[in-house]
Nucleic acid binder design. Structure first.
Lengths: 163, 163
DNA sequence: CAGAAATACTTGTACTTTCAACTATTGTCA
DNA sequence: TGACAATAGTTGAAAGTACAAGTATTTCTG
């Protein structure tokens, strides 16, 4: 077990005094995210595969038209800073999974473009990620409930973005 | 605006093909978490206050009996690695907010113990964090809906933990 | 059209987090 | 008791991330 803070002993789940329902929902959100992310990471490293961030990049690009995306849009989709994305993409390029392509009409923009090797690796990672996703989501939620959850979360995110 | 990836332009929210409702719920969860966390960070730095991680530590300790917690339990509550917590606590100690205390009966364990200055800082940070929490949660969810959301998320987290 | 402002991305630096190895202490059982 | 395993926490090296400054290109404006 590669040192991940999974609640095995579970001291007492001390939310006894805690606070409002809203704050508790926020805590639950943060913890659920961390726990699920942690398990995915763990499963990937156990399988000798690259980190989850790489998969997020590959999967996002795979869903994009022409399998490429402007750096800015990709950063936004992944909710990380543009500076961080530049270096993340650098690593994926060095690994031969992506290439940087440029825009004719606006020479400021550069695209992160998926290469065949990237598609291949993504196909290899997907089942591992999906398996963890099934453990957490499919086993606990009907499709309708998942939709409802998504709708709620998008509402939360929405008002967190429109400044 | 301190370079944070908030969806201002919103290219198209390209989840057109995407995948199953479960995967989309997961994406929404990850994005909501990142967006809300980002806004909290932004608000804290704008107010000249320490990072969100510090608040998490202080708030967790404040809710604990005797305002202290074993390092391991604290790491678990925050869902970070023990190694990471050691250094995080080191920084808070250096800032005079915490102290390290020890256990008589088991000399392996050490506690992170809240100091008055830590309580004070937490009280100063709390309204900033709460404000962002209100924007995202209180404005969008009734208390009942928040409870429902929490219940759902705890279920997800549960099956992600019981390995 | 020149110059200022805005946009898109990259890079240098500093900080944070993780991973793996290490020390110290406690528990187990032969 | 005495060795072996398990547990609690810390630490050094490496990877990742963010912030601020910097370059290049485009757009706006007088």
């Amino acid at each position: 077990m590669p040192e991940t803070a999974t609640a095995t002993t579970s001291p007492s789940t001390q939310d006894s005094c805690g606070g409002t329902p809203h704050r508790e929902a926020w805590l639950a959100l943060a913890r659920a995210h961390a726990a699920i992310t942690g398990r995915m990471q763990e499963a990937l490293t156990a399988a000798g595969l690259p980190p989850l961030a790489w998969f997020e990049v590959l999967a996002t690009l795979a869903d994009a038209p022409e399998e490429k995306l402007k750096m800015g849009d990709l950063a936004e989709a992944l909710v990380i800073t543009r500076g961080g994305l530049t270096k993340l993409v650098d690593r994926l390029i060095k690994a031969g999974l992506l290439e940087r392509t440029f825009c004719e009409t606006d020479r400021r923009v550069s695209y992160a473009t998926l290469l065949p090797a990237g598609v291949e690796l993504m196909e290899e990672m997907r089942p591992v990620v999906s398996a963890e996703l099934d453990v957490a989501f499919t086993a606990n939620l009907s499709e309708g409930q998942a939709d409802e959850l998504r709708e709620t979360l998008e509402r939360l995110r929405g008002s967190a973005c429109d400044a």
